[in-house]
Design a binder for these strands. Sequence first.
DNA 1: GTCTTTTCTGGAGTGAGTCAAGTTAACGAA
DNA 2: TTCGTTAACTTGACTCACTCCAGAAAAGAC
Lengths: 144, 144
Amino acid sequence: MPTASDFERMLRGASLRVTAPRIAVLSAVHTHPHADTDSIIGVVRQNLGAVSHQAVYDVLRALTGAGLLRRIEPQGSVARYEARVGDNHHHVVCRSCGAISDVDCAVGAAPCLDASDDHGFVIDEAEVIYWGTCPECTTAAKSS
Amino acid sequence: MPTASDFERMLRGASLRVTAPRIAVLSAVHTHPHADTDSIIGVVRQNLGAVSHQAVYDVLRALTGAGLLRRIEPQGSVARYEARVGDNHHHVVCRSCGAISDVDCAVGAAPCLDASDDHGFVIDEAEVIYWGTCPECTTAAKSS
DNA sequence: GTCTTTTCTGGAGTGAGTCAAGTTAACGAA
DNA sequence: TTCGTTAACTTGACTCACTCCAGAAAAGAC
C-alpha cells in the first residue's frame, strides 16, 4: 500500500498541487477500490474531518483527468473510482448486488481492440464489462 | 422498416397491451437508433400529440424489460435506446461529440466472453464499448 | 355492455452531480 | 521569509434525468 509521501510524489508528478484533500482522496480510493463518490466522501471525512463534497468532486475530476484515477460507471450504478490505472483491465459486475471485480484482459494486452467495422472511427480504447452473478448471489439464489 | 402492424405483433408477442404510445415509441426508436429519452419523447409527440414524459419512461422500461428494446448508457451520456436486439453487437462512441455507431462482434458470436479469471462470477454477457473519435471530429480536429 | 386490470396523466419529489462567487492556502520568486 | 499569483476549497443554490404517487382513462376478458 502506498504511503502519503508516495501519493505526494504522484501528485507532483502530475504537476498538481499537494493538498490534504487530494492525499486523502487518493488514499481512500487505494484502500476502497470501486468505491462510489459518496463512500469516498465518507472515508475522506473520517480521516480529515470536514471536507466539502464539492472539493471531493473537484479532486476526483482532477485526479481522473491527470490519469491517477480511473472512473467507471456501469449501467444503473453511480460513478465509481479505482486507482488501478495504466494497465488494460476490465470489470465483472454482479447484476443482483452490483459488486465489481477486476478482470485481466482475456485476449492479451489489447483485446478486441479491432472492431470488425469501425465506421471510420479512430478507436483508442476498448472497454469491456462482463455481466453476471457473483458467488454470494449465486449461492443465495440456489438456497432460496 | 417495420410497419405499425409489425409493432403490434411484436407487442402481442411479448404479451403487452397494444397502445398508441407504445407503437409510437417503438417506431421512434426504430427510426432513430441510439436516441436519448428526450429525443424519443419529441418524436413521439410529433406523431401523437400530447404524451406525458412519464408514459414514455414507462413504455421504454416495459419494452426494455420485454426485450423489444435495448438500453445503453455510455459514460457521461444519458440513457439511449436501440431496437436492434438479440444479436450480440457492440458500440463505438465518439469521445468528442458522443456519436454512437453499431459494431459487429470482433471475435465471432460471443467475443471475449471468457474472462481470464472470473472470480467465481457466473458471466452471461460481455459488453464492449469502443472509445475513439468519429470521422467528422477527426477531420474537424485536423483542419483546426 | 360491464368489469377488472393495466396504462396514462399531472404534479411533486429525489439524488447525483454542477455552477458560481468568494475565501484560503500552495508554492515559486523576490 | 515574505509576497503575489494562481490553483484549490467552501458554501449554498441549482440543474436535470429519472422516479413515485394518486387518480383518470382505456384495453382486453367475460
